[in-house]
Amino acid sequence: MEFLQLLLSGLANGCVYGLIALGFVLIYKATEAVNFAQGDFMMLGAFVMIGLVNSHFLGINFWIAVPLALLIMGALGYLLDITLLRSLFGQNQVAIVILTISLGFVIRFFAGAIWGHEPLNLQSPLALGDVRIGGAVISLADLAVIIVTVLLTISLWQFFQRTKLGLAMQASSQNQMAAYYMGIPVKRVQGAVWALSAILACIAGILYASKGAVDVSAGFIGIKAFAAAVIGGFGSLPGALIGGLIVGVIEPFAGRYLPSGYSQLAPYVILILVLIFRPHGLFAQVRTKKV
């Protein structure tokens, strides 16, 4: 009974981690960079949505605001790529790590300047009502999070396997030069990837804001999403989701059964253990690098 309740709340949180992790994986798969600002993208997406929907900001209808917010964030992702990231094209990963961390700082600053530093709630139609499953209670918002995440992961996975753009993204990540010779517009593909991952972050943000209050430091849950992505093996989309679920489920159980103070360590300890013992994730087939 209690077990089921903990599991459900963990799953819903885990889905948000999973969604952010999907953003990491998407960019990593396509450009071999890691976007340390993905969590802040999520926070920004949530605030863009709040800005559009909440009555003391613009007060637009929720369902009209969703595509608008996605569009804004997608455009922002694309713009960031063509203005900032493209100039680092072909540079080493460390430069991109530092760039994206700084980007996170700047985003946090602007979000704080525009929407303030107080926690805000999204006026979401999802935020009403609970559903009873067995003896456990799950809020409508949590249920929506789980369903949307599963659907999204499946469609992204299919996108990479089936569509031309998806294959182009994979190809350009593995060897930019070869992909370029094959006629793939590598730079445009990279822009599309950043737009897509910003959209994903926005979806994660909307769902996260439906679940509870958001403030500008919400982006720091991106670090937990790192744990998710690493557990899932950084290059795998379903792996990211499963990693997110693992982190999400462990948290409430650790909080329940570990002494206080130790429980919030759980995701990071697992992250480090996975990195040390299974550096390519729990689900990857490891081969050694060819010198």
Binding site: S87, L99, S102, L103, F105, V106, R108, F110, G112, A113
Partner: peptide
């Protein structure tokens, strides 16, 4: 005079340098 300006400015300076 906005709270959080210090980190924001620092991030901006860094982006400038990296690029």
């Amino acid at each position: 005079n906005i709270p959080g300006l210090e980190f924001g400015a620092f991030g901006a300076i860094l982006i400038f340098f990296i690029i």
